[in-house]
Simulated scan of single mutants.
Amino acid sequence: MKKISIISPAYNEEDNVRACYEAVRTLFEGPLAGYEREHIFADNASADATADILREIAASDPHVKVILNSRNFGGSRSLYNALRYATGDAILVLLAVDLQDPPEMLVEFVRLWESGYEIVAGARAVREEGFLLRASRGIFYRLINLLSDIDLPVNVGEFQLIDRKVWEAVLQRDDHYPYVRGIIASVGFRRVIVPYTWKARTAGISKHNFSRLINEALNGIFAFTNAPLRLCTYLGLALAAFCLLYAFGATIAYFIRPDVAPPGVATLIVSLFFLSGVQLAFIGILGEYVTAIHSQVRRGPMVIERERINVADEPQQSARTAA
């Protein structure tokens, strides 16, 4: 019997974790009855009753594995750490416990996987959310596809079913701040995209506020492209050339018409502040890359776990860690 692993990260989701568990169990008692179930919950140090509920569920169902983090390490790191524990023949990378990604899509995902596709990716064709967030997400996907050399499908998140061989390739990526959907897109393999409606949350409060979404977007951009640094180089050269041309033109104007040539004070002030602003922007972009390098070099554990429940095996190690 083939096994399907489902990863569900959680943080302060006491209103949703049980419903998520029941929805997945119902699927494997019905249309997916021919498959073995492995449901892995990763709790990111919730301050509510989420961990207690997960303990109760795991105590009554050996198909449920629970990883409790010692603190909140962020959604991406917690997800990637939980992904290392998957033992299935196919892995649903992320099923949000708020059920905004409909669990029933897993039936179609498994069917397509069995037909030969190694990555079955859900695309949020319809989003039940505000215009600002929809527009921001659309801009991000188009921007990263423009800047990077990978094809990141528009509106595709981590709601993807991947084959075991894809899972192994994903875990070879040794990244301290993994952008999981980008890693999946970068490894290749045969992929099909299935559109669906991303539902509005019915219980609890979303933890993905606008600032966190911006941080996730920047992580994706800086992880998969050096285009911002290259743009800084081009703009720096262009500004230097423009300043030389302006200086040359101002000198010629002074000798031809000294009475109408600018006295220079205003020009210097404008140039100084403009160039200072550009330099600060470039330093900020460079700092983002330096910070990423700093985190990679210092290493340390991606996630520190406080407790594991129904987990017997050690997680899959990345290539660098294993070495």
Rank of each mutant, 00 (worst) to 15 (best):
T87P: 04
Y85C: 05
L68A: 05
Y85S: 05
N81L: 07
Y85N: 04
V64F: 01
E56K: 08
A90L: 06
D89S: 08
R84G: 10
R55L: 08
R55M: 04
A51G: 07
N69I: 01
G74I: 11
L54N: 07
V66E: 02
G88D: 05
T50Q: 04
T87K: 15
A90V: 09
A51F: 06
A58H: 02
A49D: 11
D89E: 09
A82H: 11
I53Y: 10
D61G: 06
D61N: 10
K65H: 01
T87H: 12
L79H: 12
T87G: 13
N72Q: 07
S60Y: 06
L79F: 12
G74L: 13
A86N: 12
V66T: 03
L83S: 09
D89P: 06
A58S: 10
P62Q: 15
A82Q: 09
A51Y: 07
A49W: 04
S76P: 06
I53Q: 15
R77I: 09
S60G: 10
T87N: 14
F73M: 07
K65T: 00
I67Y: 01
Y80V: 03
I53G: 02
T50P: 02
G88E: 06
N81K: 13
A90S: 13
P62Y: 12
E56L: 05
L83V: 07
I91A: 09
E56W: 00
E56F: 01
D48C: 09
S78V: 14
L68N: 00
A51N: 04
D89C: 02
A86K: 08
R55Y: 07
A51C: 05
S70Q: 12
E56Y: 00
S76G: 09
N81V: 02
T50N: 02
V64W: 01
D52R: 05
A86M: 12
K65A: 01
T87R: 15
D52Y: 01
V64K: 00
S70C: 03
A51M: 07
S70M: 07
F73W: 14
N72H: 13
Y80R: 11
L83G: 10
I57K: 00
P62F: 14
T50R: 07
I57G: 02
I67R: 01
V66G: 01
V64H: 00
S70F: 01
L54G: 09
A49V: 00
A58T: 05
G74S: 14
I91D: 03
T50I: 03
A90P: 02
S76W: 13
G75K: 13
R77N: 14
A49H: 08
A58D: 00
Y85I: 03
N72S: 12
D52V: 00
R77L: 09
T50C: 05
L68S: 04
Y85P: 02
P62W: 14
I91R: 05
A58K: 08
S76V: 01
D61H: 12
S70W: 01
F73S: 10
A59P: 00
S60W: 05
A58G: 03
E56H: 03
G88I: 02
N81Y: 15
G88T: 04
F73Y: 15
S76T: 10
K65Q: 10
S60Q: 15
G75R: 11
A90K: 07
K65W: 01
V64G: 03
I57H: 06
L83A: 12
K65P: 00
E56T: 04
